[in-house]
Nucleic acid binder design. Structure first.
Length: 569
RNA sequence: GGGCGUGUGGCCUAGCCUGGAUAGGGCGCUGGCCUUCUAAGCCAGCGGUCGCGGGUUCGAAUCCCGCCACGCCCA
Protein backbone atom coordinates (compact mmCIF):
# COMPACT_ATOMS: atom_id res chain seq x y z
CA UNK A 1 0.00 0.00 0.00
CA UNK A 2 1.17 3.48 -0.80
CA UNK A 3 0.50 6.79 0.87
CA UNK A 4 -0.09 10.03 -1.03
CA UNK A 5 3.22 11.76 -0.38
CA UNK A 6 5.09 8.63 -1.37
CA UNK A 7 3.24 8.51 -4.67
CA UNK A 8 4.10 12.14 -5.30
CA UNK A 9 7.74 11.43 -4.56
CA UNK A 10 7.85 8.45 -6.87
CA UNK A 11 6.26 10.49 -9.61
CA UNK A 12 8.83 13.23 -9.21
CA UNK A 13 11.70 10.77 -9.41
CA UNK A 14 10.23 9.03 -12.42
CA UNK A 15 9.67 12.31 -14.22
CA UNK A 16 13.19 13.45 -13.46
CA UNK A 17 14.73 10.24 -14.69
CA UNK A 18 12.70 10.42 -17.86
CA UNK A 19 13.58 14.04 -18.54
CA UNK A 20 17.27 13.48 -17.92
CA UNK A 21 17.25 10.47 -20.18
CA UNK A 22 15.48 12.31 -22.98
CA UNK A 23 17.44 15.51 -22.74
CA UNK A 24 20.94 14.28 -22.10
CA UNK A 25 20.74 10.55 -22.69
CA UNK A 26 21.94 9.92 -19.17
CA UNK A 27 20.84 7.33 -16.69
CA UNK A 28 21.57 8.38 -13.16
CA UNK A 29 20.14 7.51 -9.81
CA UNK A 30 17.97 10.47 -8.94
CA UNK A 31 17.92 11.56 -5.33
CA UNK A 32 15.46 14.18 -4.30
CA UNK A 33 15.49 16.03 -1.02
CA UNK A 34 12.92 17.65 1.21
CA UNK A 35 13.90 21.25 1.74
CA UNK A 36 12.45 23.13 4.68
CA UNK A 37 9.97 25.68 3.43
CA UNK A 38 11.08 26.42 -0.08
CA UNK A 39 9.40 23.48 -1.76
CA UNK A 40 7.87 20.07 -1.19
CA UNK A 41 10.70 18.28 -2.95
CA UNK A 42 13.81 19.50 -4.67
CA UNK A 43 16.46 18.26 -7.02
CA UNK A 44 19.90 19.91 -7.14
CA UNK A 45 21.41 19.94 -10.62
CA UNK A 46 25.03 20.49 -9.68
CA UNK A 47 26.08 16.93 -10.24
CA UNK A 48 24.58 16.97 -13.69
CA UNK A 49 26.23 20.30 -14.28
CA UNK A 50 29.58 18.71 -13.73
CA UNK A 51 28.93 15.76 -15.97
CA UNK A 52 27.47 17.86 -18.74
CA UNK A 53 29.83 20.78 -18.25
CA UNK A 54 26.88 23.06 -18.33
CA UNK A 55 25.52 25.73 -16.00
CA UNK A 56 23.31 24.16 -13.33
CA UNK A 57 20.82 27.00 -13.66
CA UNK A 58 20.37 26.26 -17.30
CA UNK A 59 19.92 22.55 -16.65
CA UNK A 60 17.31 23.16 -14.01
CA UNK A 61 15.36 25.33 -16.44
CA UNK A 62 15.56 22.77 -19.22
CA UNK A 63 14.47 19.91 -17.06
CA UNK A 64 11.75 21.70 -15.20
CA UNK A 65 9.98 22.50 -18.46
CA UNK A 66 9.64 18.81 -19.18
CA UNK A 67 8.14 17.75 -15.88
CA UNK A 68 4.48 17.01 -15.58
CA UNK A 69 2.31 14.66 -13.58
CA UNK A 70 -0.98 14.44 -11.77
CA UNK A 71 0.59 14.94 -8.34
CA UNK A 72 2.97 17.67 -9.41
CA UNK A 73 1.24 20.99 -9.39
CA UNK A 74 4.18 23.13 -10.29
CA UNK A 75 7.85 22.93 -11.03
CA UNK A 76 10.18 25.87 -10.60
CA UNK A 77 13.80 26.28 -11.54
CA UNK A 78 15.56 28.27 -8.85
CA UNK A 79 19.28 28.75 -9.00
CA UNK A 80 20.63 25.30 -9.68
CA UNK A 81 17.65 23.61 -8.10
CA UNK A 82 14.42 22.28 -9.45
CA UNK A 83 11.66 22.76 -6.92
CA UNK A 84 8.54 20.65 -6.95
CA UNK A 85 5.20 21.61 -5.50
CA UNK A 86 2.57 19.06 -4.72
CA UNK A 87 -1.00 19.32 -5.93
CA UNK A 88 -2.53 20.34 -2.61
CA UNK A 89 -6.16 19.86 -3.65
CA UNK A 90 -5.51 16.30 -4.69
CA UNK A 91 -3.40 15.66 -1.63
CA UNK A 92 -6.02 17.06 0.73
CA UNK A 93 -8.76 14.95 -0.74
CA UNK A 94 -6.90 11.66 -0.87
CA UNK A 95 -5.07 12.12 2.40
CA UNK A 96 -8.07 13.08 4.46
CA UNK A 97 -10.11 10.24 3.00
CA UNK A 98 -7.32 7.83 3.80
CA UNK A 99 -6.89 9.02 7.36
CA UNK A 100 -10.63 8.88 7.90
CA UNK A 101 -10.84 5.36 6.53
CA UNK A 102 -7.78 3.92 8.25
CA UNK A 103 -8.13 5.66 11.60
CA UNK A 104 -5.75 4.18 14.15
CA UNK A 105 -4.10 2.22 11.37
CA UNK A 106 -3.16 5.25 9.31
CA UNK A 107 0.59 5.22 8.80
CA UNK A 108 0.94 1.46 9.19
CA UNK A 109 3.17 -0.26 6.69
CA UNK A 110 2.58 -3.51 4.83
CA UNK A 111 2.82 -6.78 6.73
CA UNK A 112 6.32 -8.14 6.52
CA UNK A 113 5.77 -11.63 7.90
CA UNK A 114 8.96 -11.31 9.81
CA UNK A 115 9.29 -12.05 13.47
CA UNK A 116 11.51 -9.91 15.63
CA UNK A 117 12.42 -10.26 19.27
CA UNK A 118 13.18 -7.01 21.01
CA UNK A 119 15.07 -7.52 24.23
CA UNK A 120 15.04 -4.59 26.56
CA UNK A 121 15.32 -3.55 30.19
CA UNK A 122 16.75 -6.88 31.48
CA UNK A 123 17.79 -5.14 34.69
CA UNK A 124 19.16 -7.25 37.52
CA UNK A 125 16.30 -7.86 39.93
CA UNK A 126 18.17 -6.62 42.97
CA UNK A 127 16.34 -3.35 43.43
CA UNK A 128 14.04 -0.79 41.83
CA UNK A 129 14.72 0.63 38.41
CA UNK A 130 16.61 3.87 38.58
CA UNK A 131 16.60 6.80 36.22
CA UNK A 132 20.12 5.97 35.02
CA UNK A 133 18.71 3.03 33.11
CA UNK A 134 15.22 4.32 32.46
CA UNK A 135 16.15 4.93 28.86
CA UNK A 136 16.28 1.21 28.27
CA UNK A 137 12.60 0.29 28.69
CA UNK A 138 11.43 3.50 27.05
CA UNK A 139 13.61 3.09 23.98
CA UNK A 140 12.85 -0.62 23.81
CA UNK A 141 9.12 -0.20 24.14
CA UNK A 142 8.97 2.60 21.57
CA UNK A 143 11.04 0.60 19.09
CA UNK A 144 8.75 -2.39 19.63
CA UNK A 145 5.65 -0.25 19.02
CA UNK A 146 7.22 1.25 15.90
CA UNK A 147 8.16 -2.15 14.50
CA UNK A 148 4.66 -3.50 15.10
CA UNK A 149 3.24 -0.47 13.32
CA UNK A 150 5.74 -1.08 10.55
CA UNK A 151 4.28 -4.54 9.90
CA UNK A 152 6.62 -6.78 11.89
CA UNK A 153 5.56 -9.45 14.37
CA UNK A 154 7.16 -8.31 17.57
CA UNK A 155 7.86 -10.04 20.84
CA UNK A 156 9.52 -8.25 23.72
CA UNK A 157 11.76 -10.10 26.13
CA UNK A 158 13.31 -9.32 29.49
CA UNK A 159 16.37 -11.45 30.20
CA UNK A 160 16.47 -12.14 33.91
CA UNK A 161 19.96 -12.50 35.33
CA UNK A 162 18.90 -14.87 38.10
CA UNK A 163 22.32 -16.30 38.91
CA UNK A 164 24.66 -13.34 38.96
CA UNK A 165 26.40 -11.51 41.73
CA UNK A 166 23.61 -8.99 42.25
CA UNK A 167 20.87 -11.52 42.86
CA UNK A 168 23.20 -13.70 44.95
CA UNK A 169 24.03 -10.70 47.12
CA UNK A 170 20.36 -9.86 47.53
CA UNK A 171 19.65 -13.47 48.41
CA UNK A 172 22.40 -13.59 51.00
CA UNK A 173 21.12 -10.34 52.48
CA UNK A 174 17.58 -11.56 52.89
CA UNK A 175 18.71 -14.89 54.32
CA UNK A 176 21.14 -13.47 56.82
CA UNK A 177 19.72 -10.09 57.68
CA UNK A 178 16.01 -10.49 57.42
CA UNK A 179 15.45 -14.08 58.37
CA UNK A 180 17.92 -13.92 61.20
CA UNK A 181 16.30 -10.72 62.37
CA UNK A 182 19.45 -8.68 62.07
CA UNK A 183 17.71 -5.70 60.57
CA UNK A 184 14.18 -4.51 60.85
CA UNK A 185 12.26 -3.85 57.75
CA UNK A 186 11.37 -0.28 57.21
CA UNK A 187 8.23 -0.20 55.20
CA UNK A 188 8.52 3.25 53.79
CA UNK A 189 6.88 2.20 50.60
CA UNK A 190 4.56 -0.54 49.52
CA UNK A 191 6.53 -1.67 46.52
CA UNK A 192 8.60 -4.78 47.21
CA UNK A 193 11.58 -3.71 45.10
CA UNK A 194 12.14 -0.79 47.46
CA UNK A 195 11.91 -2.87 50.62
CA UNK A 196 14.23 -5.53 49.28
CA UNK A 197 16.91 -3.26 47.90
CA UNK A 198 17.91 -2.38 51.46
CA UNK A 199 19.14 -5.95 52.01
CA UNK A 200 21.12 -5.76 48.84
CA UNK A 201 22.74 -2.50 49.82
CA UNK A 202 23.69 -3.66 53.29
CA UNK A 203 24.89 -7.04 52.04
CA UNK A 204 27.08 -5.32 49.43
CA UNK A 205 28.65 -3.22 52.08
CA UNK A 206 29.27 -6.22 54.35
CA UNK A 207 30.77 -8.11 51.47
CA UNK A 208 33.34 -5.39 50.96
CA UNK A 209 34.27 -5.35 54.61
CA UNK A 210 34.08 -9.02 55.48
CA UNK A 211 35.93 -11.69 53.58
CA UNK A 212 33.65 -14.44 54.94
CA UNK A 213 30.52 -12.75 53.58
CA UNK A 214 32.20 -12.48 50.22
CA UNK A 215 33.06 -16.15 50.34
CA UNK A 216 29.49 -17.11 51.18
CA UNK A 217 28.08 -15.08 48.32
CA UNK A 218 30.58 -16.59 45.92
CA UNK A 219 29.58 -20.01 47.13
CA UNK A 220 25.97 -19.23 46.24
CA UNK A 221 27.07 -18.21 42.76
CA UNK A 222 29.08 -21.36 42.27
CA UNK A 223 26.09 -23.48 43.19
CA UNK A 224 23.97 -21.60 40.69
CA UNK A 225 26.50 -22.07 37.97
CA UNK A 226 26.56 -25.78 38.59
CA UNK A 227 22.82 -25.77 38.07
CA UNK A 228 21.73 -26.36 41.65
CA UNK A 229 17.96 -26.28 41.26
CA UNK A 230 17.28 -26.03 44.95
CA UNK A 231 19.18 -22.85 45.47
CA UNK A 232 17.94 -21.37 42.21
CA UNK A 233 14.37 -21.95 43.32
CA UNK A 234 15.04 -20.42 46.70
CA UNK A 235 16.57 -17.37 45.07
CA UNK A 236 13.66 -17.02 42.72
CA UNK A 237 11.28 -16.78 45.65
CA UNK A 238 13.14 -13.68 46.68
CA UNK A 239 14.08 -11.88 43.48
CA UNK A 240 10.60 -12.52 42.11
CA UNK A 241 9.29 -9.91 44.54
CA UNK A 242 11.76 -7.36 43.25
CA UNK A 243 10.90 -8.23 39.69
CA UNK A 244 7.24 -7.68 40.44
CA UNK A 245 8.09 -4.20 41.64
CA UNK A 246 10.02 -3.51 38.46
CA UNK A 247 7.14 -4.76 36.34
CA UNK A 248 4.82 -2.47 38.24
CA UNK A 249 7.05 0.53 37.49
CA UNK A 250 7.13 -0.44 33.84
CA UNK A 251 3.37 -0.74 33.78
CA UNK A 252 3.16 2.81 35.10
CA UNK A 253 5.11 3.85 32.00
CA UNK A 254 2.67 1.93 29.76
CA UNK A 255 5.24 -0.77 29.14
CA UNK A 256 4.30 -4.44 29.05
CA UNK A 257 6.88 -7.12 28.42
CA UNK A 258 5.77 -10.29 26.67
CA UNK A 259 8.27 -12.82 28.00
CA UNK A 260 10.69 -13.13 30.89
CA UNK A 261 13.58 -15.43 30.15
CA UNK A 262 15.69 -16.70 33.02
CA UNK A 263 19.40 -17.05 32.54
CA UNK A 264 19.48 -20.29 34.55
CA UNK A 265 17.24 -21.93 31.98
CA UNK A 266 20.22 -22.33 29.69
CA UNK A 267 22.33 -23.99 32.35
CA UNK A 268 19.53 -26.31 33.45
CA UNK A 269 18.52 -27.47 29.98
CA UNK A 270 22.10 -28.28 29.06
CA UNK A 271 22.36 -25.79 26.25
CA UNK A 272 25.29 -24.00 27.85
CA UNK A 273 27.25 -27.22 27.93
CA UNK A 274 26.33 -27.93 24.34
CA UNK A 275 27.50 -24.51 23.23
CA UNK A 276 30.81 -24.92 25.03
CA UNK A 277 31.35 -28.22 23.22
CA UNK A 278 30.53 -26.67 19.88
CA UNK A 279 32.81 -23.74 20.50
CA UNK A 280 35.70 -25.94 21.64
CA UNK A 281 35.86 -27.45 18.19
CA UNK A 282 36.32 -24.11 16.48
CA UNK A 283 39.51 -22.32 15.56
CA UNK A 284 40.54 -19.43 17.82
CA UNK A 285 38.95 -21.22 20.76
CA UNK A 286 41.58 -22.39 23.18
CA UNK A 287 41.89 -24.02 26.56
CA UNK A 288 43.86 -23.18 29.61
CA UNK A 289 43.42 -26.08 31.96
CA UNK A 290 39.67 -26.46 32.07
CA UNK A 291 39.01 -22.82 31.24
CA UNK A 292 37.83 -22.21 27.70
CA UNK A 293 38.50 -18.91 26.00
CA UNK A 294 38.33 -17.29 22.59
CA UNK A 295 41.55 -15.77 21.35
CA UNK A 296 40.57 -12.26 20.35
CA UNK A 297 43.77 -11.31 18.61
CA UNK A 298 42.49 -12.19 15.11
CA UNK A 299 39.32 -10.15 15.65
CA UNK A 300 41.02 -6.83 16.02
CA UNK A 301 40.40 -6.45 19.72
CA UNK A 302 43.55 -5.28 21.43
CA UNK A 303 42.75 -4.59 25.03
CA UNK A 304 45.05 -5.36 27.91
CA UNK A 305 43.80 -8.88 27.75
CA UNK A 306 43.09 -10.72 24.55
CA UNK A 307 41.40 -13.72 26.02
CA UNK A 308 37.64 -13.90 26.21
CA UNK A 309 36.86 -16.48 28.87
CA UNK A 310 33.75 -18.58 28.49
CA UNK A 311 34.28 -20.89 31.45
CA UNK A 312 36.23 -20.79 34.68
CA UNK A 313 39.16 -23.02 35.50
CA UNK A 314 36.76 -25.29 37.40
CA UNK A 315 34.73 -25.67 34.24
CA UNK A 316 31.69 -23.67 35.38
CA UNK A 317 30.15 -21.27 32.93
CA UNK A 318 30.62 -17.52 32.88
CA UNK A 319 27.97 -14.94 32.15
CA UNK A 320 29.01 -14.56 28.54
CA UNK A 321 28.52 -18.18 27.56
CA UNK A 322 25.02 -18.15 28.99
CA UNK A 323 24.37 -15.00 27.04
CA UNK A 324 25.54 -16.77 23.91
CA UNK A 325 23.25 -19.72 24.62
CA UNK A 326 20.37 -17.30 25.12
CA UNK A 327 21.06 -15.63 21.79
CA UNK A 328 21.20 -18.91 19.94
CA UNK A 329 17.88 -19.85 21.49
CA UNK A 330 16.37 -16.47 20.59
CA UNK A 331 17.74 -16.59 17.07
CA UNK A 332 15.91 -19.82 16.42
CA UNK A 333 12.66 -18.17 17.35
CA UNK A 334 12.83 -15.01 15.25
CA UNK A 335 13.91 -13.66 11.90
CA UNK A 336 15.96 -10.96 13.50
CA UNK A 337 16.90 -9.73 16.94
CA UNK A 338 17.15 -6.30 18.46
CA UNK A 339 18.70 -5.66 21.86
CA UNK A 340 18.62 -2.45 23.82
CA UNK A 341 21.69 -2.26 26.01
CA UNK A 342 23.57 0.25 28.11
CA UNK A 343 26.84 1.41 26.64
CA UNK A 344 28.69 -0.46 29.38
CA UNK A 345 27.77 -3.65 27.50
CA UNK A 346 29.49 -2.66 24.28
CA UNK A 347 32.41 -5.02 24.67
CA UNK A 348 30.32 -7.87 25.99
CA UNK A 349 27.99 -7.50 23.00
CA UNK A 350 30.92 -7.45 20.61
CA UNK A 351 32.29 -10.64 22.08
CA UNK A 352 28.93 -12.38 21.98
CA UNK A 353 28.68 -11.33 18.37
CA UNK A 354 32.08 -12.83 17.59
CA UNK A 355 31.09 -16.10 19.21
CA UNK A 356 27.75 -16.21 17.40
CA UNK A 357 29.46 -15.57 14.09
CA UNK A 358 31.94 -18.36 14.74
CA UNK A 359 28.99 -20.64 15.37
CA UNK A 360 27.26 -19.37 12.29
CA UNK A 361 24.24 -18.11 14.22
CA UNK A 362 22.12 -14.98 13.97
CA UNK A 363 23.66 -11.93 15.56
CA UNK A 364 21.53 -9.28 17.21
CA UNK A 365 21.32 -5.67 16.23
CA UNK A 366 22.14 -3.66 19.29
CA UNK A 367 20.91 -0.22 20.22
CA UNK A 368 23.23 1.21 22.83
CA UNK A 369 22.22 4.06 25.04
CA UNK A 370 24.47 6.26 27.13
CA UNK A 371 23.77 6.62 30.82
CA UNK A 372 21.66 9.13 32.56
CA UNK A 373 23.92 10.39 35.30
CA UNK A 374 23.50 12.84 38.15
CA UNK A 375 25.36 16.14 38.27
CA UNK A 376 27.48 14.53 41.01
CA UNK A 377 28.27 11.45 38.92
CA UNK A 378 27.01 8.10 37.85
CA UNK A 379 24.03 6.53 39.57
CA UNK A 380 24.65 3.49 41.73
CA UNK A 381 22.12 1.34 43.53
CA UNK A 382 24.88 -0.17 45.62
CA UNK A 383 26.04 3.21 46.87
CA UNK A 384 22.53 4.52 47.21
CA UNK A 385 23.38 7.43 44.93
CA UNK A 386 20.31 7.14 42.75
CA UNK A 387 17.09 8.70 41.68
CA UNK A 388 14.60 5.88 41.46
CA UNK A 389 12.21 5.81 38.56
CA UNK A 390 9.32 5.51 40.98
CA UNK A 391 10.37 8.74 42.67
CA UNK A 392 10.55 10.50 39.36
CA UNK A 393 7.11 9.22 38.42
CA UNK A 394 5.66 10.21 41.76
CA UNK A 395 7.12 13.70 41.59
CA UNK A 396 5.99 14.13 37.99
CA UNK A 397 2.42 13.17 38.89
CA UNK A 398 2.49 15.53 41.85
CA UNK A 399 3.56 18.45 39.69
CA UNK A 400 1.17 17.57 36.91
CA UNK A 401 -1.68 17.43 39.38
CA UNK A 402 -1.00 21.01 40.43
CA UNK A 403 -1.09 22.10 36.81
CA UNK A 404 -4.32 20.25 36.10
CA UNK A 405 -5.98 21.64 39.20
CA UNK A 406 -5.09 25.15 38.11
CA UNK A 407 -7.10 24.56 34.96
CA UNK A 408 -9.83 22.44 36.43
CA UNK A 409 -13.49 23.29 36.07
CA UNK A 410 -14.47 20.71 38.61
CA UNK A 411 -15.51 18.15 36.04
CA UNK A 412 -12.14 16.87 34.93
CA UNK A 413 -10.66 13.57 35.95
CA UNK A 414 -7.68 15.20 37.61
CA UNK A 415 -5.98 11.94 38.61
CA UNK A 416 -6.10 10.44 35.17
CA UNK A 417 -5.01 13.57 33.35
CA UNK A 418 -2.17 14.25 35.76
CA UNK A 419 -0.93 10.69 35.44
CA UNK A 420 -1.04 10.75 31.67
CA UNK A 421 0.70 14.09 31.47
CA UNK A 422 3.38 13.01 33.93
CA UNK A 423 4.12 9.70 32.22
CA UNK A 424 4.03 11.38 28.83
CA UNK A 425 6.50 14.03 29.93
CA UNK A 426 8.92 11.40 31.24
CA UNK A 427 8.71 9.20 28.17
CA UNK A 428 8.96 12.10 25.76
CA UNK A 429 11.93 13.70 27.45
CA UNK A 430 13.84 10.46 27.15
CA UNK A 431 12.82 9.48 23.67
CA UNK A 432 13.39 12.88 22.08
CA UNK A 433 17.12 12.59 22.64
CA UNK A 434 18.92 10.07 20.54
CA UNK A 435 20.14 7.11 22.59
CA UNK A 436 23.90 7.48 22.23
CA UNK A 437 23.92 10.91 23.78
CA UNK A 438 24.75 11.02 27.47
CA UNK A 439 22.20 12.75 29.67
CA UNK A 440 22.72 14.50 32.96
CA UNK A 441 19.54 14.24 34.95
CA UNK A 442 17.96 17.47 36.03
CA UNK A 443 14.57 17.57 37.66
CA UNK A 444 13.41 20.73 35.92
CA UNK A 445 14.20 19.25 32.52
CA UNK A 446 12.73 15.83 33.19
CA UNK A 447 9.54 17.44 34.41
CA UNK A 448 9.16 20.02 31.70
CA UNK A 449 5.54 20.41 30.64
CA UNK A 450 6.09 23.22 28.15
CA UNK A 451 7.63 23.67 24.75
CA UNK A 452 9.08 20.56 23.20
CA UNK A 453 7.36 18.11 25.52
CA UNK A 454 4.59 15.52 25.64
CA UNK A 455 2.02 17.86 27.19
CA UNK A 456 2.46 20.24 24.26
CA UNK A 457 1.46 17.45 21.89
CA UNK A 458 -1.26 16.13 24.15
CA UNK A 459 -2.58 19.66 24.42
CA UNK A 460 -2.86 20.05 20.66
CA UNK A 461 -4.71 16.74 20.57
CA UNK A 462 -7.06 17.88 23.33
CA UNK A 463 -7.70 21.09 21.40
CA UNK A 464 -8.71 19.07 18.34
CA UNK A 465 -11.06 16.99 20.45
CA UNK A 466 -12.49 20.08 22.05
CA UNK A 467 -13.30 21.67 18.71
CA UNK A 468 -14.90 18.48 17.43
CA UNK A 469 -16.90 18.16 20.63
CA UNK A 470 -18.14 21.72 20.47
CA UNK A 471 -18.97 21.57 16.80
CA UNK A 472 -21.29 18.75 17.70
CA UNK A 473 -22.11 17.83 14.16
CA UNK A 474 -21.34 14.70 12.28
CA UNK A 475 -18.55 15.15 9.82
CA UNK A 476 -19.90 14.58 6.36
CA UNK A 477 -18.14 13.63 3.21
CA UNK A 478 -17.38 16.69 1.19
CA UNK A 479 -16.68 16.19 -2.45
CA UNK A 480 -14.50 19.09 -3.33
CA UNK A 481 -12.43 19.93 -0.31
CA UNK A 482 -10.43 23.04 -0.93
CA UNK A 483 -7.96 24.63 1.40
CA UNK A 484 -6.49 28.01 0.64
CA UNK A 485 -5.02 29.35 3.83
CA UNK A 486 -1.31 28.90 4.26
CA UNK A 487 -1.76 27.35 7.69
CA UNK A 488 -4.27 24.85 6.35
CA UNK A 489 -1.93 23.87 3.56
CA UNK A 490 1.06 23.55 5.84
CA UNK A 491 -0.95 21.33 8.13
CA UNK A 492 -2.05 19.03 5.33
CA UNK A 493 1.48 18.70 4.07
CA UNK A 494 2.70 17.94 7.56
CA UNK A 495 0.04 15.26 7.97
CA UNK A 496 1.08 13.67 4.71
CA UNK A 497 4.62 13.17 6.00
CA UNK A 498 3.58 10.85 8.85
CA UNK A 499 4.04 7.57 6.95
CA UNK A 500 7.40 8.78 5.67
CA UNK A 501 8.52 9.42 9.22
CA UNK A 502 7.37 5.98 10.29
CA UNK A 503 9.39 4.40 7.52
CA UNK A 504 12.47 6.44 8.27
CA UNK A 505 12.46 6.01 12.03
CA UNK A 506 12.04 2.26 11.65
CA UNK A 507 14.81 2.09 9.09
CA UNK A 508 17.24 4.03 11.23
CA UNK A 509 15.88 2.55 14.50
CA UNK A 510 15.64 6.11 15.71
CA UNK A 511 12.45 6.89 17.62
CA UNK A 512 13.60 10.44 18.35
CA UNK A 513 12.64 11.24 14.78
CA UNK A 514 9.04 10.36 15.56
CA UNK A 515 9.16 12.46 18.71
CA UNK A 516 10.32 15.44 16.71
CA UNK A 517 7.69 14.95 14.06
CA UNK A 518 4.95 14.77 16.66
CA UNK A 519 6.08 18.10 18.01
CA UNK A 520 6.19 19.67 14.56
CA UNK A 521 2.71 18.43 13.78
CA UNK A 522 1.33 19.81 17.03
CA UNK A 523 3.10 23.07 16.36
CA UNK A 524 1.67 23.19 12.85
CA UNK A 525 -1.80 22.64 14.24
CA UNK A 526 -1.31 25.46 16.73
CA UNK A 527 -0.54 27.80 13.83
CA UNK A 528 -3.72 26.67 12.10
CA UNK A 529 -5.64 27.14 15.33
CA UNK A 530 -4.30 30.67 15.59
CA UNK A 531 -5.07 31.62 12.00
CA UNK A 532 -8.19 29.71 11.06
CA UNK A 533 -11.40 29.88 12.94
CA UNK A 534 -13.25 26.57 12.64
CA UNK A 535 -16.61 26.71 14.38
CA UNK A 536 -18.95 29.20 12.81
CA UNK A 537 -16.73 29.97 9.85
CA UNK A 538 -18.01 29.55 6.33
CA UNK A 539 -15.48 26.79 5.90
CA UNK A 540 -16.54 24.99 9.02
CA UNK A 541 -17.18 21.60 7.44
CA UNK A 542 -13.92 21.21 5.61
CA UNK A 543 -11.98 22.60 8.52
CA UNK A 544 -13.62 20.10 10.82
CA UNK A 545 -12.40 17.39 8.50
CA UNK A 546 -8.91 18.76 8.80
CA UNK A 547 -9.13 18.98 12.58
CA UNK A 548 -10.34 15.42 12.75
CA UNK A 549 -7.53 14.22 10.52
CA UNK A 550 -5.01 16.05 12.70
CA UNK A 551 -6.55 14.57 15.83
CA UNK A 552 -6.18 11.11 14.33
CA UNK A 553 -2.53 11.50 13.31
CA UNK A 554 -1.59 13.09 16.63
CA UNK A 555 -3.27 10.17 18.34
CA UNK A 556 -1.32 7.68 16.25
CA UNK A 557 1.91 9.49 17.10
CA UNK A 558 1.13 9.45 20.79
CA UNK A 559 0.15 5.78 20.71
CA UNK A 560 3.49 4.95 19.18
CA UNK A 561 5.27 6.95 21.83
CA UNK A 562 3.32 5.16 24.54
CA UNK A 563 1.69 8.39 25.65
CA UNK A 564 -2.02 8.85 26.33
CA UNK A 565 -3.89 10.90 23.75
CA UNK A 566 -5.95 12.96 26.18
CA UNK A 567 -9.28 14.35 25.06
CA UNK A 568 -9.22 17.11 27.59
CA UNK A 569 -6.56 18.66 29.75
C1' G B 1 47.92 1.50 25.68
C1' G B 2 43.42 -0.13 22.90
C1' G B 3 38.07 -0.17 21.36
C1' C B 4 33.26 2.19 20.86
C1' G B 5 30.41 6.65 21.35
C1' U B 6 29.67 11.97 21.95
C1' G B 7 31.18 17.43 21.06
C1' U B 8 26.08 22.38 17.35
C1' G B 9 24.30 30.19 20.87
C1' G B 10 24.11 30.76 28.56
C1' C B 11 21.71 25.48 28.97
C1' C B 12 19.40 21.26 26.15
C1' U B 13 18.74 19.33 21.31
C1' A B 14 17.53 18.04 15.52
C1' G B 15 20.13 17.48 11.16
C1' C B 16 25.49 13.56 10.07
C1' C B 17 24.02 7.10 7.50
C1' U B 18 22.52 9.21 1.79
C1' G B 19 27.23 16.42 1.17
C1' G B 20 23.31 21.09 -1.61
C1' A B 21 19.65 26.93 -0.90
C1' U B 22 19.77 32.10 5.05
C1' A B 23 22.30 25.44 10.38
C1' G B 24 15.96 23.84 12.41
C1' G B 25 13.74 23.50 17.50
C1' G B 26 13.13 23.96 22.81
C1' C B 27 14.57 26.05 27.77
C1' G B 28 16.12 30.65 29.78
C1' C B 29 16.14 36.04 28.95
C1' U B 30 13.56 40.91 26.90
C1' G B 31 8.88 42.85 25.06
C1' G B 32 3.82 41.90 23.47
C1' C B 33 -1.18 38.80 22.93
C1' C B 34 -6.89 35.81 26.80
C1' U B 35 -14.97 40.02 25.40
C1' U B 36 -14.95 34.22 19.94
C1' C B 37 -13.09 26.89 19.15
C1' U B 38 -8.51 25.30 26.30
C1' A B 39 -2.71 30.88 27.25
C1' A B 40 0.34 23.42 29.00
C1' G B 41 -0.85 28.26 23.64
C1' C B 42 0.70 32.37 20.11
C1' C B 43 3.87 36.61 18.13
C1' A B 44 8.41 39.59 18.08
C1' G B 45 13.55 40.22 19.77
C1' C B 46 18.57 38.99 21.76
C1' G B 47 21.96 35.01 21.11
C1' G B 48 25.99 30.31 16.59
C1' U B 49 34.10 30.23 14.63
C1' C B 50 28.46 23.39 14.03
C1' G B 51 35.39 21.08 19.52
C1' C B 52 40.36 22.38 16.83
C1' G B 53 43.57 21.75 12.39
C1' G B 54 44.15 19.84 7.60
C1' G B 55 42.16 17.28 3.14
C1' U B 56 38.41 15.74 -0.74
C1' U B 57 34.58 18.59 -3.54
C1' C B 58 31.52 23.33 -7.85
C1' G B 59 29.70 22.94 -2.58
C1' A B 60 31.27 20.17 4.15
C1' A B 61 27.77 20.44 10.56
C1' U B 62 27.51 16.06 7.19
C1' C B 63 32.78 12.33 3.88
C1' C B 64 38.44 11.27 4.89
C1' C B 65 43.00 12.08 8.05
C1' G B 66 45.26 14.07 12.54
C1' C B 67 44.58 16.30 17.33
C1' C B 68 41.85 17.80 21.87
C1' A B 69 37.91 17.21 25.55
C1' C B 70 34.09 14.26 27.77
C1' G B 71 31.35 9.41 28.50
C1' C B 72 31.48 3.98 28.57
C1' C B 73 34.44 -0.37 28.52
C1' C B 74 39.13 -3.70 28.59
C1' A B 75 35.97 -9.52 31.14
Amino acid sequence: MKYPFEIFKEEVIMQLEKAIKNLYNLEIEVKVEKPKEIADLAFPCFQLSKILKKDAREISKEISKRIKGEWIKETKAMGGYINFYINVDKLAKELITKIEKMGDNFGKLDKKNLKVIVEHTSANPNGPLHVGRARNPIIGDTIARLLKFGGYDVITQYYVDDMGKQVATLFWGVKNLKEKGKIMEEKTRKKPDHTYVVYYQIASKLMEEDERVKEEIEEIMRKCEKGDRKILDEMKKIYKNVLEGIVESLRMLNIEIDEFIEESQFVLDGSVEKVIKELERLPHVKKEGKAVYIDLEPFGIHGRDKKFYLTRSDGTSLYAIRDIAYHIWKGERADFLINVLGEDHKLEAKLVEIALKLLNKKTPEVIFYAFVSLPEGRMSTRKGRVVYLDDLIEEAIERAKKEVEKRSNGEKDVEYIARSVAIGAIRYNIIKVKPEKAIIFKWEEALNFEGESAPFIQYAHARCCSILRKAGIKIEEINDIKYNHESEINLIKMLSLFPEIIKESIKTRNPSMLAEYSYSLASCFNAFYRDCRVIGSDKEKERLLLVNATRQVLKNCLNLLGIEALEEM
